[in-house]
Amino acid sequence: MKSVKHILARKGSNVIAVPATTIVLDVLKLMSEKNIGSVVVTENDEYIGLVTERDYARKIILMGKHSDETTVGEIMSNSFPHITPDSSVDDCMLIMSERNIRYLPVFDKEQNLSGIISINDLVYETIHSQKETIEQLQSYIHST
C-alpha cells in the first residue's frame, strides 16, 4: 500500500511558507504565481497553520474584510490533523473526506513539518498505483 512518503518522494517536501504577519493580498498573489491553493503560516520559523483559498473565501470575502488590511495569521486554519510520512494514502483520503478538507500537513517523528499533501496528490497517487497494478496483471496474464 502506498504511503505519504511516496507522494513526498515524487513531489518533494518543499513548502511555501510566510510569517503570520503577512498581508492576505500578498499571499493571494503568491498562491496565484505558484499555482497553489495553500501556504504554510509560520511564527518564529515554526509551523502554526495553513492559509487556504477556502480561508480567504470564508473569512475575508464573506465577512466583509479587506485582503489588503488583514494578515494571514487572522484567517489561517490550524486544526488540521497531523499525519506522518508513514500514513497510508487510503487513511489520508478518509481523513480528508470525513473532515471535508483539501490539505494535510505532514510531520516527522520530531513533529517537524515534512511537507504538505493535497487531495490532488492523493488522487494522482491512487491513479498511478492502479495503473501499476493493471500493468502487473496484464504482464502476468501474458506470461502464462
Rank of each mutant, 00 (worst) to 15 (best):
V39Q: 01
V39D: 01
V123I: 15
S97Y: 11
G49C: 07
I23P: 04
G12A: 09
V15I: 05
N120C: 01
L104A: 01
V18D: 03
E98R: 13
D45L: 10
I83L: 03
V72E: 00
R102V: 03
D68V: 05
K131G: 04
E110L: 15
S118M: 06
V51S: 04
D108T: 10
S79E: 12
S114Q: 14
K11S: 07
I36K: 01
D45I: 06
M1F: 11
L28C: 14
E125R: 12
L30K: 09
P85R: 07
S129W: 09
I48E: 05
D55T: 04
R10K: 14
K65M: 13
L25P: 00
S38L: 01
G115K: 02
L25C: 09
S38K: 08
K59T: 11
I7T: 03
H66G: 09
E125Y: 07
P105K: 04
T84H: 12
V123L: 03
A9M: 13
N120A: 06
N120P: 02
N112I: 10
M93V: 05
K59L: 08
V27I: 10
S88W: 13
V40G: 04
E43L: 09
V40A: 06
P85D: 05
Y56D: 02
N100G: 10
S38A: 14
Y56L: 00
E110S: 13
P81M: 10
G115N: 02
G115L: 06
E53L: 14
T52E: 04
S118A: 02
I36M: 01
V41I: 03
V24S: 05
E43N: 10
H82A: 15
G115A: 08
Y103S: 00
L113V: 12
K5T: 13
D68R: 14
C92E: 04
K59D: 10
T52V: 00
P19C: 07
L25W: 08
G73S: 00
G37H: 12
H66C: 08
M63T: 11
S114E: 13
S118P: 01
I101Q: 02
I127Y: 05
I7C: 03
R58D: 10
